[in-house]
Nucleic acid binder design. Structure first.
Lengths: 362, 362
DNA sequence: CGCTGCCGTGAATCCCAAG
DNA sequence: GCTTGGGATTCACGGCAGC
């Protein structure tokens, strides 16, 4: 793709995030992960996105002013991101209750389409010291596509299901904070205040991107996105305002090793497997014309015809349409519905398709 | 308090919620629990893999033309609520990603002060039937005070800690949906599409109100708030637009008895071991991507992928499905089947799971 | 009476390539 | 744009029938 030639891949652009994003070509990025600042509302010092300090805090109007400023900032960087995101790309934003509601509303206002909100449940959150609230034990991520119309965003459903012991991955993820040796230190003190754990980014990239994809992080910070992207064979573009952080991140990423074995990264799903027409199964003699197929519980029967169609009392046609017809159902997957007798065992006809696919791969 | 004399306590006011709220005196309510329409914006019908159709929430009261219309609605009822809420009162709103970001932003704009966002993790959510997203397994509640200045809102810290096995109550709550005999039925069909479980309301009222407090629910629906309020010795004011729902709720509440011994509601400690997906083991670095697993007798081998799946000559997928595939068995417990070399010793991967569980208990 | 297996169902923004 | 049809897709419970 020609656009990719001009992309500053696997680099950190130092500067204002909107200015830097605007230098990138449109529709060029597969995935965005953003961890925007949300320290604009903490007690004591109140800082606007442009770094100017808000004077009075406890006045209603000022609060409103501050939210307005944050909303403007949020709209601006999201609009910039939206331009460079591919039409079927994905966007993640992480935040806490201080900012995530404003971010979510801005996303919807700009036409992004929310796919899930995901809860990062912390195994080891900071306790609430004063006993005035519930322990704030989670953060919220919003995952969205570029628009309602995008139906081909990347979601590695099968990989996530395998990860989770063959059950669908839920919208709540239990993960520890970034501590111990993973936590970057400078002179014994943490190098960045909000370094995210690599496990969190790994789950984001593994679920919603493919190897080789370009991942943009407009608030790069300590570079967790880049480190995990490199490890997992994705490309990254980082943007960071502070030179110090950019240097720390670049050092960190240089020490990361990419997983070399391609077979460990390649993603396959049933939806991307080649289509095998049922006729091929008959053609190859794996099923004989005239052979009788039946459902698991032997309630319905149909005969194989030489042209790869089925015929039953109720209907004739494809394995799917006849399966649907005998059940009186609106639809049916004939591959898993119909079975045949092989050596006294009842086997689904899907085994023949799997056999053909295995031969195609070899 | 004189204001309370005029309050329509333990009643349901039938009518538009804003009109009804406006009839109440200002600064008269201790707690508000609101379950507003979610603005789901559903498209077509959704069919389960078994061809049954999901009974979706497509009621007229959940339809809004635009986000702007929804925002206007939200601002209007929140402003009305704010007037009748005492200065040290509390407000809860529950929602999903469809609406909660807009609600949260509106709360902040109106001067409410967010104390926590609380995640209701569902033990038994509806799965994602088409494999296109993460299972939407939670809803979000926002708990806030009337303003930043309110420092005397009610939070029963010690009660919550006692209920939670002497650990601070976290911001993520694991609770089942409202099903079974608790679910109100009319002619065998659910009486209300979005009836909330009493356990959820119990936790809300026990944590942030006191016996005798007045609790207002402007979207009363099937009356869970009223039922639990009566049970726990709180007073309620319900507002509901639909006469049918109001009647169902009143009947329901009439059958409720007050509970004298609140210890009955103690959150039972989970005796069952927490589920640890295999992916967590890889995520935590206890197994490295590319590492080779084998069975006890080293007849079969598979490699660990970074996404927590395995790949062997024969198959790829979860530890369980690949274990089954290599043996030609219908099923397999991957935790005990697969082993790895650690310092010259062959250890089953289950030791890593036990290790994670031990950490989680600690 | 207890065990097993089948069936129903829950706030859901849920397919997609080929013609 | 459109239509058509192949075929991919579910977890935890409660209730109930059957044995």
């Amino acid at each position: 793709m020609t656009a990719q030639i001009r992309l500053p891949l696997d680099q950190i652009l130092v500067g204002d995030c909107i200015e830097q994003i605007n230098k990138l070509p449109e529709n060029s990025v597969d995935l965005v992960f953003a961890d925007p600042p949300y320290n604009l509302q903490l007690q004591g010092e109140l800082v606007r996105p442009n770094n100017s300090v808000v004077d009075a805090v406890d006045d209603h109007w000022d609060q409103f002013e501050t939210f307005q400023a944050y909303d403007r900032f949020t709209h601006d960087w999201l609009r910039a991101v939206r331009r460079v995101l591919k039409d079927d790309g994905g966007l993640w934003v992480i935040g806490s209750y201080h900012n995530i509601f404003r971010v979510g509303a801005a996303l919807q206002d700009l036409g992004f389409w929310i796919l899930n909100d995901v809860i990062w449940r912390k195994t080891n959150p900071m306790p609430n010291f004063r006993g005035k609230r519930f322990t704030n034990a989670h953060e919220t991520l919003i995952w969205c596509s570029k628009s309602e119309k995008s139906k081909r965003y990347t979601f590695n459903y099968d990989a996530m299901k395998a990860f989770n012991d063959d059950q669908q991955m839920r919208s709540d993820w239990l993960l520890p904070l970034c501590t111990g040796s993973e936590r970057l230190k400078v002179d014994g003190r943490k190098a960045h205040p909000t370094q995210k754990p690599e496990s969190l980014l790994a789950r984001v990239l593994l679920s919603t991107s493919q190897p080789g994809d370009v991942v943009l992080d407009p608030f790069f910070g300590s570079g967790t996105t880049g480190a995990v992207a490199k490890k997992l064979g994705r490309r990254f573009i980082g943007i960071e305002r502070e030179q110090d952080y950019a240097e720390i991140a670049m050092d960190r990423i240089a020490r990361v090793k990419r997983i070399e074995d391609e077979s460990l990264l390649k993603i396959e799903s049933k939806r991307t497997e080649p289509r095998v027409p049922f006729g091929n199964i008959v053609e190859r003699g794996m099923l004989r014309p005239g052979e009788v197929l039946f459902d698991q519980r032997k309630r319905w029967f149909a005969k194989v015809r030489p042209d790869g169609s089925l015929v039953s009392d109720a209907a004739k046609g494809s394995i799917h349409s006849v399966g649907a017809a005998v059940q009186g159902a609106p639809a049916c997957n004939g591959w898993t519905f119909w079975h045949v007798d092989r050596g006294g065992n009842t086997v689904p006809i899907d085994v023949f398709r799997q056999q053909v696919r295995a031969e195609m791969r070899a």
